[in-house]
Nucleic acid binder design. Structure first.
Lengths: 227, 227
DNA sequence: GTTTGGCATATTGTATACAAAATGCAAGAC
DNA sequence: GTCTTGCATTTTGTATACAATATGCCAAAC
């Protein structure tokens, strides 16, 4: 016996509801700050309020929702400061992932990453933004996988999701895009050279650029001083 | 008007239940791996199953409980690897907190920390372990406060709670205790000197020592290879 | 005109009832 | 004796009913 200890996935209603809500939030169908009416939403999702409320608790734990006692639940609306703080922590986490990756990376991993990098550059040169984002995500996930620390991966993922909830197709102008691709090249080079400190620097710089782009998007969308 | 936007605290039942459970888990009254029967526990806590289940969801999000669909909820039982991974991430987070703190610390902060350090050394020299732990916690919280990044603080706290759940009054022998106190001295010195890299090193070393102590405790308590 | 108080309504919080699934045991087959 | 099968029981999952709280409106007071 031993079916690999992985029972076939059967989502419970709260989990399914949470999954659905997560998507709605990230895609922006549920806007930041939006108040969620339990009865209404439960009817829309076709579940009763009980599992929906459990879904709320899960997403609140992930920082995607905010719950106020007796006043309901709303989609989190991150302030400029929140975004700054989150990106700072992301930077620290990814830098650490880089360090771990340096100590564990194999030549095979590097070959894989180089292949992905080539794909990314192809997407870049044909100006295919969606494909670029897609590969970008794969590369960062891959780095985390090489670091081989599930706690780190989970923490990173949770924070990243919260940031995605800003539906930040950030205004990535050509100059920034070029820079990002170049940083990715540096990243793989540092990893291939097993140069931890260099990788740290690249990753932190990379994250800071992303942060900058998102903050600029926020500035364009809402008035300064706003929430 | 502005009552500082802080409404007077009125805990809802799920929150109160979660709080209580958290304490029970950390104090070890609910042992790692223990299965939690909903009906039984709800009767013991004097609430119905509905709010208790919401409490379960919250604590699962914090990583203190594990929920298996249709098989109930149990207290998390961290493996050796889990502990290693968690400590690694804690180290990265605390090192980053140190960096931030260096850039923001005031002379007043340092005076406060020196006072706390003196208290800690007093507790150390009269072999008062509980007092030592208490002050130790205050100091680390203080460092986080100086870093002034709420996202970082929250992430750190969550992880730290999970580790506390190991009920690790780790076997802190005299040599290790001496070393820990010395590291704290170095920590404050590096902070006072505004030396970020030095503080990083001290904090990571400090965390590694803690990790070591906890892992040794685990080795003594259970058989190797075990969960 | 502004503020206060009270009521009607809407919404969240909690308990309970019912449904579905898992568990354990016992009887039968081999 | 061991393995399977089916049933009774327990436990978790979900819906719904009821309670408590918040919200919004309107009237009355100043």
């Amino acid at each position: 016996m031993d079916g690999s200890n992985i029972p076939i996935a059967r989502l419970t209603l709260p989990e399914a509801a949470a999954e659905r809500l997560r998507t709605l939030i990230i895609e922006g169908a549920l806007a930041p700050g939006a108040k969620l009416n339990e009865r209404e939403l439960s009817e829309q999702l076709g579940v009763s309020r009980t599992p929906l409320r459990e879904a709320f608790r899960m997403l609140a734990g992930d920082g995607l929702l905010v719950q106020l006692p007796n006043r309901g639940t709303q989609v989190v609306a991150m302030s400029r400061e929140d975004v700054q703080h989150a990106f700072e922590v992301m930077g620290a986490l990814e830098a650490f992932a880089g360090e771990l990756a340096v100590s564990r990376v194999t030549d095979g991993d590097i070959a894989d990453l180089r292949a992905l990098q080539a794909e990314m550059e192809a997407a870049h040169s044909r100006h295919d933004l969606p494909a670029y984002y897609q590969i970008n995500r794969v590369i960062h996930d891959r780095l985390n996988a090489i670091a081989a620390n599930p706690v780190l991966t989970h923490t990173y993922r949770t924070l990243n999701t919260r940031l995605h909830a800003l539906r930040f197709r950030s205004n990535l102008n050509i100059a920034k895009w070029n820079q990002a691709v170049a940083e990715h090249r540096d990243m793989i080079a540092a990893l291939a050279a097993r140069d931890g400190p260099a990788l740290r620097d690249v990753l932190i710089k990379h994250l800071r650029a992303k942060q900058q782009a998102v903050l600029e998007t926020m500035n364009n969308e809402k008035m300064p001083g706003g929430n």
